[in-house]
Design a protein around this nucleic acid. Sequence first.
DNA 1: ATGGAGGCGCACA
DNA 2: CTGTGCGCCTCCA
Length: 113
Amino acid sequence: MSAPPSFNDRIYRLVARIPRGKVATYGQLARLIGAPTRARQVGYAMAALKGGTTLPWHRVINSKGEVSRRKVYGAELTQRMLLVKEGMRFNPRGRLDLDQYQWQPRAVARKKR
DNA sequence: ATGGAGGCGCACA
DNA sequence: CTGTGCGCCTCCA
């Protein structure tokens, strides 16, 4: 029997589609799977990823364009490093300009944010 | 069962 | 800008 894809699986599938040089926010991913109020669970899903994952987990940030704080400090630095390596540049305030870097799954049809 | 805390986000003050 | 509250759901003690 094929079980319906879990919340986490849908998130992971989406994360896998984020192109290099772009980022998505937790809330954005939640909205994209039709669960606009569950941004926090997206964060939880990411936290549950294992070390050897092939997913571009580093391309997921918060709605302010910053790399979120978490338990293990080193992970934040790794994430920032990976993003910079993909060509993105952080503000003096340590944030990314979402207008410039946020992933737009549907290129055209999207006017409001 | 109950209460915190967690890679969030939004509205308000 | 910061802080607080609430909604949301999962985990864990």
